[in-house]
């Protein structure tokens, strides 16, 4: 991540927090679209509510959000539309409740994707994170439920994690509104291009497959040079995903 030097006030979220306006459901004329993704029951809706000022119903069971909810906020004179996606464990399966999230991440072209994870179950959550990082190059990891991780004696080195994943990492406890100002600041920095990412790419794949992926991905890039996720599309094609083939033919996703 390369960041330009900034003055102390620029980087202080509490200074900038005055520029925040929660706009609720008023999602007209936005400058950026922010997607909120993550495993079920990691507190996505709580984060969503904390940022937009909405009161989307939350509950302690997996699969609470089944449709995508939309809200908005304004930060430093820019309007952000925020989309709360249903929780998914993976983008590789084909079940119906995961489809909403999958399609939005691939074809909705969010300006920024916030990936909410449960800090006390990081390893399991990374499965989805690594998949999303194949799709987008502008994402922030929201390490949520830090209060629970603390209680469980789990310590996370957020700086190395950010380096490993190649995206900013913000620790939060959304239920207690902790970390939310920092998260908003990071979203804004990403959207405005003040911070750029170099997302982790899946490494531990057998050579033979890696070669095939590379070959296919190069061909796709020739056709669509600006596509950030040619590798992911190559994955899907190799898996025989008919939906992706259809979309490639119609060129809908560009």
């Amino acid at each position: 991540m390369d960041t330009k030097p900034k003055s102390a006030c620029d980087t202080c979220v509490h200074f900038n927090a005055e520029g925040l306006k929660k706009l609720g459901v008023n999602t007209t004329n936005f400058d950026f679209v922010v997607a909120l993704a993550g495993n079920p029951n990691t507190g996505k809706s709580t984060v969503f509510n904390a940022i937009t000022g909405l009161r989307q119903h939350t509950g302690n069971w997996p699969g609470k959000t089944v449709t995508r909810a939309e809200g908005a906020f304004e930060y430093n004179k820019k309007k952000f539309k925020m989309v709360d996606l249903p929780g998914t464990y993976s983008l590789l399966s084909t079940s119906e409740d995961e489809e909403v999230a999958r399609n939005f991440l691939l074809f909705g072209k969010p300006s920024v994707t916030v990936i909410v994870v449960d800090a006390s179950r990081l390893e399991r959550n990374l499965n989805l994170v690594l998949q999303i990082l194949e799709i987008t190059d502008r994402a922030v990891l929201c390490l949520n439920l830090m209060d629970e991780a603390d209680r469980n004696g789990i310590e996370i080195d957020t700086r190395s994690l950010a380096r490993e994943l190649g995206i900013p990492v913000v620790a939060s406890s959304a239920r207690f509104n902790k970390g939310i100002p920092e998260l908003i600041q990071t979203i804004s920095d990403l959207a405005n291009g003040k911070v750029s990412c170099k997302p982790h790419r899946i490494k531990n794949i057998p050579k033979k497959i890696e070669k095939a992926v590379e070959k296919l991905s190069d061909e796709i890039k020739k056709e669509y040079p600006n596509l950030p996720n040619s590798r992911w599309i190559a994955f899907r094609l190799l898996e025989g995903d008919r939906h992706i083939m259809e979309v490639l033919r119609t060129g809908e996703f560009v």
Binding site: L122, E123, L130, E155, I156, S160, E164
Partner: peptide, 11 residues
């Protein structure tokens, strides 16, 4: 990949 990342960042 996930296991590798966790092994260096989580205690």
């Amino acid at each position: 990949d996930a296991a590798e990342i966790v092994s260096t960042t989580v205690k």
